[in-house]
């Protein structure tokens, strides 16, 4: 899944003009809500996320537990509301690192040109060819599931598409007439990057970064699902799904609640990106 997304292309333009505002508001509001929730969760009047109740295992909704309890008798509502914090944090950290790395590589390649460009892009191709989930599985299994390690790996796996994008976009800009003119005037390359190239490619890169954010969320949840992601008893959506999956037909909520949260966040980011990227098209 994540490889699919990583290797496929620019976000797809989407939604008819008249409906754009609706998508913007709904999508953006959901994303905002998720981020807000992740920040304020500790101050909400919820049951402690780790508290277990030996008399209430896999129970349905009740006054005490609005979304029922999981296989260790813990409150599903509290765990679900807290469950975005690790994945969102990890995804943001990895994607920022990936963006910085990818941006640097892409800019250097496009500005330097020649053999530097060739070497950087070939290395880039090689990294792109690595099956990301397999690499993640290997790293998490052999080196450990420490979040620093995972973030570094994810950043390395997700920097190449950004590098490629930045290089193409910046080459596009650099060959335009006004840039050529500026260079003839004697403007330094660094000035050019800051004054001309950056503003011109910001939109494309931001879109890519936002899409990657969702892929990393999904990749991390797949990793947790295969037992190599978040550490118990951390409430984390992917881990909650994995823990609850065996009891899905008995008590669906411990699985359904995190799925709804994960899917709504990914969907909201995707639709917002779709909308904003279609703004940029002529």
């Amino acid at each position: 899944m994540t490889d699919l997304a990583r290797a496929s292309f620019e976000p797809v333009k989407f939604a008819a003009p008249g409906r754009r505002r609706a998508w913007l508001s709904v999508g953006a509001v959901i994303v905002f809500g998720h981020v807000l929730l992740a920040i304020v969760a500790p101050w909400l009047p919820l049951q402690p996320v780790a508290k277990q109740n030996s008399g209430a295992i896999l129970q349905g909704p009740s006054a005490a537990h609005w979304l029922g309890t999981d296989n260790l008798g813990r409150d599903v509502l509290a765990r679900t509301l807290f469950g975005g914090r690790p994945s969102i944090g990890l995804a943001v950290a990895s994607v920022v690192l990936a963006a910085v790395l990818g941006f640097a590589i892409g800019m250097v390649a496009s500005l330097a040109g020649g053999w530097v460009d060739e070497v950087l892009m070939r290395v880039n191709d090689v990294l792109l060819a690595l099956p990301s989930l397999l690499v993640l599985l290997l790293v998490a299994s052999f080196i450990g599931r420490d979040s620093g390690v995972l973030i570094a790996t994810l950043a390395l796996m997700y920097a190449p598409p950004i590098a490629r994008l930045v290089r193409t976009a910046s080459l596009n800009v650099l060959t335009r007439d006004f840039i050529v003119a500026a260079r003839l005037r004697g403007a330094s390359r660094r000035e050019l990057v800051i004054s001309e190239v950056l503003p011109n490619i910001r939109g494309v890169v931001l879109t890519e970064v936002a899409m990657q954010f969702t892929w990393i969320l999904l990749a991390f949840s797949s990793l947790s699902f295969l037992g190599l992601g978040a550490n118990p008893p951390t409430p984390e959506w992917g881990l909650m799904i994995a823990e609850g999956r065996g009891y899905m037909t008995i008590a669906p909520l411990p699985v359904v609640a995190p799925i709804v949260m994960l899917a709504s966040l990914v969907l909201a980011v995707n639709s917002t990106v779709d909308r904003s990227s279609s703004d940029g098209t002529p």
Partner: peptide, 19 residues
Amino acid sequence: VQAYQEQVKPAGIRVKLTM
């Protein structure tokens, strides 16, 4: 270990679970 961690908390035993 998850259950043990919760059970012994009141006694001042702070358990770190390492996978």
